[in-house]
Amino acid sequence: MEHVISCLVENKSGVLSRVAGLFSGRGYNIDTLCVAPTQDANVSRMTIVCRGDDRIIEQITKQLNKLIDVIKVIDMTAEEHVERELVLIKVACTAATRADIIQLVNVFRARIIDVDLKTLTVEVVGDARKVEALIELMRSFGIRELVRTGRVAILRG
């Protein structure tokens, strides 16, 4: 099962390598990883999306907690939380398809952020289901490039 693990770490050099090394060294897979400082500049938050059965996820959270530079680990999947991902899609367009694409983008409350004669660049923000749905729809027009931030998540309330 997929889990979203949120990890507060000291904002120091080498911490990302410790976390990434832990996953690769123990054979766990990272689907997405997003890192940036929090409101406290000394602390960064890593949001890690990974897969595994309960035993593996338990090991991942314990092993993360064991790292000296890790402050706190939360498995968001077990809690009420909100997830978002930002995706940029550069989609092929012609005079004939441009209107259709714009219409779909509007339905998804996404935005066109760059226009060219042959392409449109779409920015979409949402949870996994929403962005995956739009990506699927865009495929039929021909995706030239796709850039994803990876997911971030925050607990409710």
Binding site: S17, G21, G25
Partner: peptide, 14 residues
Amino acid sequence: TSGISRPVTKHNYL
């Protein structure tokens, strides 16, 4: 050295 020793130490410092 800190990179090479990371997986075989409890912690390390540069």
